Computed example of a mutant assay.
Amino acid sequence: MTNTSRSDATTKKTIEMVEVSPRDGLQNEQRAIATHDKLALIERAIASGARRIEVTSFVNPRAVPQMADAEAVCAGLPGRGDVTYIGLVMNMRGAERAIATGRIDQLGAVAVGTDTFAMKNQGQTSDGSVEACRNIIARAKDAGLTGQATIAASFGCPFEGEVEEDRVIAMATAIAEAGPVEIALADTIGVGNPAHVERLVARVREAIDPLPVRVHFHNTRGTGLANVWAAISAGASVVDASIGGLGGCPFAPGAAGNVATEDVTYMLERAGIETALDLDTLIETNRWLADVMGKDLPAMVSKAGGFPKPNISSTS
């Protein structure tokens, strides 16, 4: 494991990372990515230390063409008992598709903080999306899987603007009753700020205790890493990130790049917080993925490199 952190005598805190590049990282890209490249990305993520990976989404391929090969991706997943493969689903039809593959370990359901975005994203109201989440989590359990939920637009909506904190808390409380493994707060369009993040994460954490809070940030306005730090400070224990900083939502205008896995890893490890990820492998994967995508990727650490290694030469 690459030593990216300063050594100290204190007990290190650990943050669980969820790698979302194969799904959220690619879903909004116009360039069609071959199934074998998606599988190679997943294998490289595993080699970097990722043990929870959002591998695909089971959505209408007309709406999200990049995810049309969901079943093919699942068929090619390496058999790893130590890796949790997550499939994003928006409705029960998607849930049944994911379950039928026999390769998905966890269903990821989505609720949306506003009616307008919920209608564009899932064709139902915000309340309807909460009920759908609860049903998907129950179906996952029936199938012997686990379920988790993400509340999209927790920090702001591209159509309605401000989202009331009390609304997000009420949604999280209702979803928690279904027994997911965790609930995520997503800054879908990258409008969050650290003060808002710290306050909302703390309130949701208190409301759903003992369930963990996961966070999902986009770096659209340059606040992604600051928001990750604020969320962890407020008690979030799981962080979504995407290798290279790729990502975006097809139904949310301006929802550019996720926080980059290598950037988050560098920041946390240097601060003495363990991620179980290897930074050098992530940087190598960034360069490989840039070739696949045919463009430079947004992540900063892969451009600059990790913390300088000592280069001491002796003279006699």
Rank of each mutant, 00 (worst) to 15 (best):
P212G: 05
L246R: 03
E262S: 10
D209A: 08
A184T: 11
V213S: 08
N193T: 10
R287G: 09
M300V: 12
D263A: 07
D240E: 11
D240P: 09
A304H: 04
H196P: 00
W288A: 02
A252D: 01
N227Y: 11
V197K: 00
C249Q: 00
G179K: 04
D209N: 10
G190D: 05
K295S: 14
N286L: 07
I189A: 03
N227I: 08
N227E: 07
R203Q: 12
E269A: 09
S302C: 10
E284H: 14
A176I: 04
D240R: 01
A234I: 13
D280G: 12
A226G: 13
L289D: 03
T188L: 14
G179V: 04
E206S: 13
I183R: 03
I183T: 05
D240I: 03
V259W: 06
I232S: 09
A252P: 01
A255R: 01
F251H: 02
A276C: 14
G245H: 06
A234N: 06
P253F: 10
L279E: 09
V264R: 07
G247D: 00
A299Y: 00
F307N: 14
P250R: 04
N219D: 15
D209P: 01
N286D: 11
L246M: 14
V292K: 03
T223M: 15
V228Q: 01
E269T: 11
L279H: 04
E284M: 10
Y266N: 10
S237M: 11
E206C: 04
A186T: 12
I273V: 15
P180S: 11
G245T: 06
F307P: 06
N227T: 15
V228G: 02
G190M: 03
T173N: 02
I183H: 00
M267L: 13
T285P: 04
P210K: 04
K303Y: 06
P308L: 10
T265P: 04
R270G: 11
A260N: 02
L279T: 05
T261H: 06
D263I: 02
H216L: 05
V239I: 15
A202Q: 11
A172W: 01
L185Q: 01
G222F: 04
A276M: 15
P194K: 11
A184H: 03
R205M: 15
R287S: 11
